[in-house]
C-alpha cells in the first residue's frame, strides 16, 4: 500500500512498547498490530488523536505516503 505506518520508529524513539501504547490509547494489541503491519484499511481520527497525544507527535510522523508508480 502507498501509505506507510511508521509507528515502530516513533515507538522506538519514545522508548515505548506496543502493549503499553495499546493500553494507553485503549485499543487491543491485536488491533495495534493490524495498524503496525499495514493491514488496516482505515484509521479513526479518535485513534490517531490518541496515538499523537500519547506519543507527543504529529500524524505525519506516523503516516507517510510513498508513490509506488
Amino acid at each position: 500500500m502507498a501509505i506507510i505506518i511508521n509507528l515502530d520508529a516513533v515507538l522506538d524513539k519514545r522508548g515505548m512498547k506496543s502493549n503499553e501504547l495499546a493500553e494507553a490509547i485503549n485499543i487491543t494489541t491485536a488491533n495495534l498490530s493490524i495498524l503496525k503491519t499495514g493491514k488496516a484499511k482505515a484509521v479513526r481520527f479518535s485513534t490517531l488523536e490518541a496515538i499523537c497525544k500519547v506519543l507527543e507527535c504529529q500524524p505525519g510522523d506516523i503516516l507517510e505516503y510513498i508513490d509506488e508508480d
Binding site: 488496516a40 484499511k41 482505515a42 484509521v43
Partner: peptide
C-alpha cells in the same frame, strides 16, 4: 464488514 473489521 472486512473494511469495518480492519478499521483501527
Amino acid at each position: 464488514k472486512q473494511e469495518n473489521d480492519l478499521t483501527v
